[in-house]
Design a protein around this nucleic acid. Sequence first.
DNA 1: TGACTCTGGGAAAAGCTTTTCCCACGCTGT
DNA 2: ACAGCGTGGGAAAAGCTTTTCCCAGAGTCA
Lengths: 353, 353
Amino acid sequence: MNDRLGDDPELDEEARAPGARTIRDVARLAGVSIGTASKALNANGRLSAKTRAKVLKVAEELDYRPNNLAQSLHRARSMTVGILSNDNYGRFTFPIVAALERRLFDSGIAVFMCNATDDPARERRHIDQLLRKRVDGLIVTARRADRREPIEPAARGLPVVYVFARVDNPDALCLLPDDEGGARLAVEHLARLGRKRIAHITGPEHFEAVRLREKGFRAALASAGLAAPPGACRSGRWSEEWGREAVRDLFARPAAAPDALFCGNDQIARGALDALNEIGLSVPGDVAVVGFDNWEVMTSGARPPLTSVDMNLDALGTAAGDALLQMMAGSKLCGVSRLPCSLVVRASCGAIL
Amino acid sequence: MNDRLGDDPELDEEARAPGARTIRDVARLAGVSIGTASKALNANGRLSAKTRAKVLKVAEELDYRPNNLAQSLHRARSMTVGILSNDNYGRFTFPIVAALERRLFDSGIAVFMCNATDDPARERRHIDQLLRKRVDGLIVTARRADRREPIEPAARGLPVVYVFARVDNPDALCLLPDDEGGARLAVEHLARLGRKRIAHITGPEHFEAVRLREKGFRAALASAGLAAPPGACRSGRWSEEWGREAVRDLFARPAAAPDALFCGNDQIARGALDALNEIGLSVPGDVAVVGFDNWEVMTSGARPPLTSVDMNLDALGTAAGDALLQMMAGSKLCGVSRLPCSLVVRASCGAIL
DNA sequence: TGACTCTGGGAAAAGCTTTTCCCACGCTGT
DNA sequence: ACAGCGTGGGAAAAGCTTTTCCCAGAGTCA
């Protein structure tokens, strides 16, 4: 038996076909059958240590990589999942997807990225493609806006996790941030710092997140024994401009002016900060401000740096990965699960720093 | 022959195994051989119209989807590519990847998303996984910072496109935005509007983009017959804070103050706007400002809305997709290709609106 | 009517692994 | 020395398609 593979003319011959190494090559060069090679590579059957080592050595020298296509075909598990996204901006989706991909990759699963920007036909074609590729599961993400339709029944039997997306089907598993709890966190913090007249400037009411955050806002006020005067909650757009407008309006009569603002997102908060500045009010001296999203580019560019609620999107992504793995292993999971937010304290709320 | 498939007891039997339909099922129910069914589905061999129609009808009724794994195994083309990203933020990568995915999907190719956030070991494992999955090509993206190492030689023979990333290997294809041209666009525009003392506030010098933009800045000044006084170009960080600092410094002696600022990124521009505001200078009245990146959240939140250079990242993504498709079809492409930027004019530069 | 040409469809190999089942060899015990 | 048993490794099927090659039947022409 020739152990010096480096001198084996057969090896040189093989070296010319890169990337196309098969288990046949390994078996032939190791002088064993294909089945034996497979067993050695997978630490599977009963083989002598010598044979096993020989096969592994040859595989290493050939830089052999098993063909996942053939493996998947045989095992009826592709070790891939599809991520269906509808976020054309990517700001929320990206951290989720990144964490998800990391979690799944650590379990040996690769993800197909599919972007179907609110085009139902395109989404159907994507799902069709994923089914042809025999993905083992599906993740569906959306912008927070929409309570979307469940995906096609064709996917029945396939594990599906909706993350940062909500469907009405009670059999579906939806993972979402706890908007209400996040709002409560912010308002409780402000109340604890002694603020008495807390207002809420937020986005369009048709967002469920807006309604939930308002709910949390009111709940926290109530449990802090504070009143929510009429007009203390303003919903508008998600923009800085709206933040500025709302502040100008809220502070038009100084007597009734708030001493704290909880904003529905960091852009609104940023606009609010700018407007307060212009009015001549100091932050956090006269008014404390808390945002939502903890979007670094907004919070750190703001003056003073913005305290903000973090939705822990990466934890959400990791949780979605965990859930999908469980479902792929046979568990039936369903219902709406909301993961906690956290408060990232910076200077704008007037906490001791 | 029973044409009413709805009544066929065999069909009902089959209906219980969802997603597991094979071409055997189609063939059996259509009363033809597997080979014939395949020919009908692929419009391939010579078949009578009747047989073809019969097979297609059965396939439709069964909701049959060919198993891509088996197809790929046979054809030795997986119709998948991997996207290897190192951008942990996603701001630049996301638009590129989205456009890329769209382009490739339209050609029937699915993309594996791999995030290897600057961890070389992780990147190697990702590449290994992709090779096992027998991807037909690879896209490598990076943060603009680094002139990165080419990926492992193991991938030799596999088409690779570097986009928004740069490697020294002359055999590699790199697609990048034309930073220099973008800078020229901005400065020419300012010069055309009559600005005479144009300064440049930009990011860290170790970024190639910073050096190229400065080069474009100086070139455009020269060809407009304007001088670039010493200290007209300041490099620092990519942050709003740096924009504010630099403005305070540049405008310390009003006599030598610029009448226009070209900023290396929108965050710097945003900071500059705020600082100018505080100093009491009007934009664009006293000073015109142009940013870089055309990042919507920055440009539209700014007051006044910010004129900015757009790197056309989606065009870059589409071009990368085109290039990869060509390489997959056999073309050898290499070299560094820079795609044009464009200027998006808003109020901050003082153009007629 | 016989030979020949189409034509439509079938059989089988190939693509790469995994896994089950089985066989042969060598050893043990008497 | 022989029966039996354990052990290591091989053969082959299966997983799902595609494609090539071939055959049978029908039609055509002389």
